[in-house]
Simulated scan of single mutants.
Amino acid sequence: MAGSRLIPPAPSSRAAKVLGSDLDRRAHTLHSWLRQRGRAGDGRTVGKDFRLRPGEVVLVDEAGMAGTLLLDRILADAAAAGAVVRLLGDPHQLAAVEAGGALRLISRAGGAIELDRLHRFRVPGEADASLTLRDGDETRAVFDWYRARGRIVAGTYGSMCDQVFNAWAKDVNKGLTSLMTAADTATVTALNLRAQAHHIVAGTVDTSHAAPLRAGQHAYVGNTVVTRLNRRRMTVRGGRNFVKNGDTWTVTKILPGGALMVRHTRHRGRIRLPADYLAAQCVLGYASTIHRAQGMTVDTSHALASARSTREGVYSS
């Protein structure tokens, strides 16, 4: 029946995967959706997922991280088909890597409906503290709230790197999955190498063979690595999933020539990652930039903030 379908695209493959799981239906990235819609507009055959009829609803999740030009194309395409678009997201979180700000503009212009209650916090007062940080009001008071509860500590750059790493190591030694985050790539790389050294000392990785990764890093059997570029033709779980930007994997075997056999840390699917892909698009996965960490699921995370950190970055951590 026309008008009965909800179409859920998102800015990234990881966000699309989460959205699809939550809605129990297939979701797509904004780029892949528009690419297939363009094919349909050229009269080429596309799957039923990419057909758009009057009255249908295109629900864009994490819209604050979507580029403005992409959203404009989505809106124009939907309007031409007689469909409607709904943008879902938080305009105060991290913005798009490309030119963005559309969701924030809509929010400031008064054209947005906002939730008035938070449900994810259990500690009394934390929901209000989160909203204060989100809105950028009375930030000194809200940081005092976090500091009083041991959520944040302050010190020199070196001592804070030590604190982040030590907190991560303590959690990992308890058997938890944990992630370190920082605003800049240099700090992320240093934390990743330090985490790898921790695993070497602990004997949880096999250093008899190594495979080259991006930026001079190397992976051993037992390491956690993260892929940085979508590869739809590299499928896992019988074709039900594919290698995505931000996926984390455990190295299970190093093959001749530097390829890796890896197992996904969540859905447990296995795949061979070729050496050329690893060298260009794969790094250690113990630490991440704040942007790349969005959508990752771990037991704990430990963020390093500095004078260069933005309010959006701290809020999203």
Rank of each mutant, 00 (worst) to 15 (best):
M65L: 03
R51A: 12
V298D: 08
L284T: 02
S12T: 15
V57W: 10
V262P: 03
G258H: 01
T139Q: 11
R26Y: 09
H264Q: 05
G38H: 04
P91L: 02
M234H: 14
W33D: 11
A63C: 08
L87I: 05
A15V: 05
H209E: 12
P124G: 08
V221A: 04
L115H: 09
G257E: 10
R266K: 15
T156C: 03
V298K: 09
S159Q: 10
L133N: 04
R86N: 02
A210Q: 09
W249L: 03
A215V: 09
R120V: 06
Y157L: 14
P91M: 05
E56I: 02
A275V: 02
A259Q: 06
K170C: 15
D72C: 10
H218K: 14
H92W: 08
A66I: 04
A183N: 13
R292C: 01
A287Q: 07
R263C: 01
R26K: 13
G216T: 06
V84Y: 00
T204I: 07
K48V: 12
V46Y: 04
A167W: 08
L118W: 00
L19S: 12
A16R: 05
N223H: 08
V60I: 12
K170F: 15
D72I: 09
P11C: 07
Y286F: 13
L103R: 04
R292F: 02
V57T: 13
A195D: 04
Y220R: 11
R5Y: 03
T224W: 10
K253W: 01
D247Y: 05
R26V: 10
R151F: 14
V18Q: 14
P124T: 12
S12W: 07
A83R: 05
R117H: 07
N241K: 09
K17E: 15
V225W: 00
L133D: 03
W249S: 01
G246N: 07
R270M: 05
G313S: 11
V46S: 09
R26T: 12
D49Y: 08
L105T: 03
P54G: 07
G82T: 06
